[in-house]
Design a binder for these strands. Structure first.
Lengths: 194, 194, 194, 194
DNA sequence: CATGAATGAGCTTTCATTCAT
DNA sequence: CATGAATGAAAGCTCATTCAT
């Protein structure tokens, strides 16, 4: 489909030339389409970029959500570790695109699917905390904890991919799991490093 | 001084119009200065923006560094809380500018003072961990812990200011302190909420 | 066609304002076209000017070459006179543009068609000398003679048009023919003035 | 003197950066003078360039005129050869400046000393022809001949220096002398090449 | 006289967007 | 629907010139 070709081309151009280098002419050329055709499907340039990011968010969401659902019944340490690992792997599929989005692209509007995804994961986390409230220290509000955890995990994972610090994958997963679990004191036995 | 007027104007324009809307003509007009005058003091547009951010970084650094140094000898919970509070207050002086920098400004090289500031705080954190190694769990590398803590605290603080979640200041400080201390298990008695 | 309109406008602007006054905006306005349209057909301003000059060179070349070929078999005096006359008439079609090119336009690379035209005429002249070597004094190198003749004729013709000295056309043609023929001592009977 | 420093600097800048690269700021900097000071001595940029060229013309004129005067009494072939040689040497003192003037600098005004020099040489040539009218073919007007000769010699000499054709100096001098003398048929025995 | 910070018109070029075909 | 030539506002930047000191 034409929309698909445009979105793919836009993604490639964003990766290769950054937000500022992603002119509509360049995107159209990369898609093998005339500039005018872009406007059959999108009202303006930013809508194209937003759509690319939305599409990426959907892929992320799908990828992470399934793992997350599957490991919900596992012990907390395993669950957290699995979830972060899923996120890490999903983000690492297109690290260059991730970089283009995070480092080059200004935040476009607030209604993005990325924000919605963050919101949804926040709600799931809160539900999870409520369900396991017995093991969570009692002096924390669940929505507060969920807000902190979601932003913390998301950001550290993104930075881990983009900055490639001298920390290996298992160590990183162990540490972030520890960070999350100790925060709520569900921490008597976080998973050992492999 | 003219440089000062230019930087101030650039900051205002950055806040009001974002990076892309911050044209040199607009900055010059806002500064009540001719476009040509910008180039007496800066080689190009990006240098102006970089200078604005550097100036902001310097203010941040000065503000945070003094508090941080002063509370180094306090008990860990108090020290962490004080440091985060200092950061929070410093960032909250110009929240709109913070938003402009975070959401609109493409990363301007890695040589910015902001990156240097992050680096410096990371090193101080590591030194602090080494000094207090007796109270830190032994299975964590100090550089890894410092990397995680710095990014975590920085990002959560920024997001707290930008997203204004339904968490009050004291609660936020308590939670982030808990997050940091429990991570390393120096957590027997985090400060109580006021 | 649009290219034609642009080239014509550029030529007019070049005549009226010189190279430095020939701004892209001025050319666009003169062509009744938007500035952006220039860049659909030319990569930059110099390419436009070069194209105008190339177009002029082509016209010159075509005009002179045909006469030159047609009179190759005529006696030397007639041949030289015809050739110079052809050049003179060709250059005199747009004397104002000739002035703009000669007096205002910095040399645009050596790859211009004008240089190529000079080169080509030089080669033809040398061939002509070789063919008629019997009537040429033997102590001159043909390439040297060709170099001297071509520059001399070209320059005097151009100056004749631009400076409008008090010499009438026939006199000028007679003198330049004499100059060329006597130089090689094929001079027993240069044409008489009309 | 300051004017001298400015003119020297302007000449250097003209050589090194061409007409377009010769900004007033650059000239002022090269002269170790403030931009404003230029306007104490010159009404505008082009006046500076014109003055540089005038100064160069004066040097040329002085250099050539003395030789020319000194060899007036010599036999025609020697006189012509000496004069052209003097011009050639004078022009070859600063070939790079000559190139800058000829190839980069638009013609500025008509009242230049260069034009005056050309005029003066023309008059001298005419006087010389009148004096030696016995040896000049009778069907040529002296002013016409002078006009042709002056432009021809000037241009060929300049081009010889700028284009460096594969003709050695003596050969060139011999040929140009021949060209000049044969033109008027004072040519029975032009100087032999060395 | 000399300075040099300041000027501001104007330069070349880009690019998101439109619309007649 | 698709095209792509055309648009034109606006971008970053330069530089000859001025004038208060």
């Amino acid at each position: 489909m034409l929309v698909e070709r445009i979105l793919y081309a836009a993604q490639e151009v964003l990766i290769g030339h950054g937000y500022d280098g992603a002119s509509t002419n360049r995107i159209a050329a990369a898609a093998g389409v005339s500039p005018g055709s872009l406007y059959q499907y999108f009202p303006n340039k930013d809508a194209i970029v937003a759509a690319v990011i939305d599409r990426y968010s959907d892929a992320l969401a799908a990828s992470v959500a399934s793992t997350l659902a599957r490991s919900l019944q596992r012990p907390a340490p395993e669950h957290v570790r699995n979830s972060v690992a899923a996120l890490l792997d999903a983000l690492d599929v297109h690290p260059e695109f991730l970089r283009a989005v995070i480092e080059q692209t200004p935040r476009l509007g607030t209604g993005s699917k990325l924000a919605a995804f963050e919101q949804r994961i926040g709600e799931l986390t809160m539900a999870y905390l409520v369900m396991n409230r017995a093991q969570v220290r009692s002096d924390v509000r669940f929505d507060t904890a969920a807000w902190m955890l979601v932003r913390m995990i998301e950001h550290l994972t993104v930075r881990y991919i983009l900055d490639r610090p001298d920390i290996d994958r298992n160590e990183f997963l162990y540490e972030i799991t520890t960070l999350a679990l100790n925060y709520l004191r569900i921490h008597d036995d976080p998973m050992r490093r492999a």
